[in-house]
């Protein structure tokens, strides 16, 4: 009943406002303003199952009318994350699959263009430094800047970080801030537990904003850790914007190349779960320490 009353109330407010607008007593702009204020007065339902919320239908819902073999369509959809079996309106996508595409792209763009929040860094007690890139646009169009630290970062790291530890962990936003916020809270404690319970000396992890993979080489030169582990946001696809990679390098120097890094990718709740990935990474780091090598050289020793 409460819902119905609210609905009714909204309709009444809206028609009153429209009348006022027609009579020129209200500008369109302020109408919007007044409307949203009126809406805000409507109590928000904390319950997710509330009737008056629009969301996407389940992906399992059959979108093809009268398929020849519905079981086959279901099985095909299960076999690939690709957008198949989505039906059509004429030659165009159905409304829901079009809007779902937009939503997925929006989430992906937000992951790239929004920053990791201050609140997140505080909650996870992560010190924050920045690469040489000064803005997101610069970071995206100038890969060279994301590969080294800003002067201020160099100073902070030199002053605050413990030197000559066995392992230094970096959290790097890379191309997805969402990957950081979604995975680090479970990945990091799992990885730290795995390393510490084996008696490995680990420096306090910290965060690098606008960073790319190679920034770990610059950090290594400052902290002189044996192994640097970068947990970095991957370029989002439409399937997930939360995928994270771990790049591990053993004592990098000027001659270090891409192939010297050991990489574990696809860490997210739909890939390898972050908490399990942490335990796996701890094992890999231990092996790298034992082998005193990473990347191709490490693989050859295995």
């Amino acid at each position: 009943m409460a819902v119905a009353n609210n609905e009714l109330e909204k309709v009444i407010i809206q028609s009153v406002l429209e009348e006022l607008a027609k009579k020129g007593l209200l500008s369109t702009k302020s109408k919007d303003h007044v409307m949203s204020a009126a809406m805000m007065g409507t109590p928000l339902h904390s319950d997710d199952s509330s009737d008056d919320m629009v969301t996407f239908p389940s992906l399992d819902e059959m979108q093809i009318s009268n398929p020849i073999n519905a079981d086959a369509v279901k099985a095909m959809k299960k076999s690939t994350p690709a957008r198949i079996g989505i039906g059509r309106a004429g030659t165009r996508p159905k409304t829901m699959s079009w809007l779902r595409f937009l939503a997925d792209h929006a989430v992906a763009q937000d992951a790239v263009f929004l920053d990791v929040s201050e609140e997140f860094l505080n909650n996870n007690q992560l010190m924050s430094v920045q690469s040489a890139a000064t803005t997101k646009d610069e970071f995206l169009t100038r890969p060279d800047l994301g590969r080294r630290l800003s002067e201020e970062a160099v100073k902070i790291i030199s002053e605050k970080c413990e030197k000559n530890v066995q392992v230094q962990i970096l959290i790097v936003d890379g191309l997805s801030s969402s990957a950081i916020e979604a995975n680090i809270p479970d990945l990091l404690p799992s990885l730290m537990q795995g390393l510490k319970s084996s008696g490995i000396k680990v420096g306090a992890p910290f965060y690098v904003k606008y960073g790319r993979v190679w920034v770990q080489d610059h950090v290594a030169a400052l902290v002189k850790a044996e192994v640097i582990v970068s947990l970095i946001g991957e370029r989002p696809g439409l399937g997930t914007a939360e995928s994270l990679s771990a790049y591990m390098i053993y004592r990098p120097d000027e001659k270090t190349v891409e192939a010297d890094r050991t990489v574990i990718s696809n860490i997210h709740k739909g890939g390898i779960p972050p908490v399990e990935a942490g335990a796996h990474l701890a094992d890999v780091v231990k092996q790298i320490l034992a082998a005193k090598a990473s990347g191709v050289k490490f693989n050859q020793q295995k």
Partner: peptide
């Protein structure tokens, strides 16, 4: 021609079957 315009292997968007 990519299903739904979303290439799930190369992670980019291209012309869809539609």
């Amino acid at each position: 021609g990519v299903a739904g315009g979303d290439d799930v292997m190369l992670s980019y968007q291209d012309t869809s079957f539609h």
